[in-house]
Design a protein around this nucleic acid. Structure first.
Lengths: 214, 214
DNA sequence: CAATCAAACTGAACTCAGCTCAGTTTTCTG
DNA sequence: CAGAAAACTGAGCTGAGTTCAGTTTGATTG
């Protein structure tokens, strides 16, 4: 499963692309993108530094690819999780739980995505990097749209009070992905515990009525 | 006010330290830390590149200083805002509102803090950088503690249902600071609108009861 | 008003991670 | 086996970040 999350259709059988991505996820996740030496990634895969450039135009291109694949997986996981839900509340719970049903490697991938999300703001100089960046931006918009649509349905059905769906979607996402800033696999808290806690927070945020002030 | 947020006691009258910090906040905020050329900061201040090293040991040292001052301001703002609150609900609202009562420059500073928070995870090689990093970590812990303490008081007073205060504090913070990932000054949404929206989310999250499932 | 000293600053040169280039080896295909 | 494409390599280039060995500025003091 650890390789699947980093594989694409156009990777041939001899391709070391998934292995490079896996090594890069390890490095970027452990010490951060900037602090990672590109040559360290090459060493872990067992190839020369220059061989990396057969697969990626640059270190940044590799990072953007990791981010895109992470977003692709998040998008797919959301759809799969919410497909069979009979109500919007149920779909909401399923969506949040799906966001935390990840392998340690996928957790790293999400942390990397979260840590380097600012990279998507500004245009890239090279074409392939810019292509990946655009793909990431579209996927971010898609993921936001998925959540907003879920909320809109729930509001239309009267399950959730009417509130701005886009802002609510962004807030939910902020809450859900914010966990990757502090969660570490093997830490004191189980991912399952966090998942349950955040699910509760999301449900109250979305479905809850304002309690009386004071 | 734009300079105050970046000034410290030990800056002499001739010191260009605050000016360098202000220029760095602009650059790091606009194009990101990594994409910013250190020499560009020197140009904006109107000094040679090497003069920067009279004030900062490195580009990273400058970034860590910006982050520390941002955290210091957040901590101070929280205390000031919640000092006069007569109830925990009121304190909660005041704390969230204070988190968004910022000048455009301080918004940038918070975005930078948020974007580069991962930098605080790993040890730094040089002493001065490591000192700043430790200070940042302590301030992060302090800010988390501020929120957790507010929640504990509210739970003890029966204003909020009992839930893990630390996890709740982290969730609130994730929700509040997550806004800096997408908010841009001069964008379609007013900061005031966002502040009100997030305040409502926080109150429901903390004070709300679980609604019936389905 | 020099003499002094620290703070502020500079141009030239160094470092090293990211990257290019020109060419070699390996594997697949007809 | 011939040819092509994919996979790879060592040597060297590049430029942002940094160091070094001084010079200038300006406040202070006898």
């Amino acid at each position: 499963m650890s390789i699947e999350a980093l594989t694409e259709a156009d990777d041939g059988p001899r391709s070391k692309r998934p292995a490079i991505l896996a090594a890069a996820v390890e490095c970027f996740g452990e010490v951060g993108y900037e602090a990672t030496k590109w040559s360290e990634v090459a060493d872990r895969v067992g190839i020369g530094q220059t061989a990396l450039y057969h697969y990626f135009e640059s270190k940044a291109h590799c990072l953007l690819t990791i981010m895109r694949l992470g977003l692709r997986n998040s998008d797919a996981a959301f759809r799969e999780a919410t497909a069979g839900a009979s109500s919007s509340s149920e779909a909401l719970r399923a969506a949040v739980e799906a966001a935390y049903a990840l392998s340690p490697q996928e957790v790293q991938q999400n942390r990397i995505l979260q840590s380097n999300i600012a990279l998507l703001a500004n245009e890239r100089a090279s074409r392939r990097e810019e292509t990946e960046r655009q793909a990431c931006r579209e996927l971010v918009a898609q993921v936001e749209h998925n959540w907003a649509e879920l909320l809109e349905r729930g509001m239309a059905a009267g399950e959730f009070p009417r509130r701005d769906p886009q802002m609510m979607a962004r807030s939910l996402l902020g809450l859900v992905v914010g966990v990757w800033r502090w969660y570490r696999p093997g830490g004191p808290l189980e991912l399952r515990t966090i998942s349950d806690f955040i699910t509760g927070c999301c449900v109250r945020m979305v479905a809850g009525r304002e309690p009386d002030a004071g």
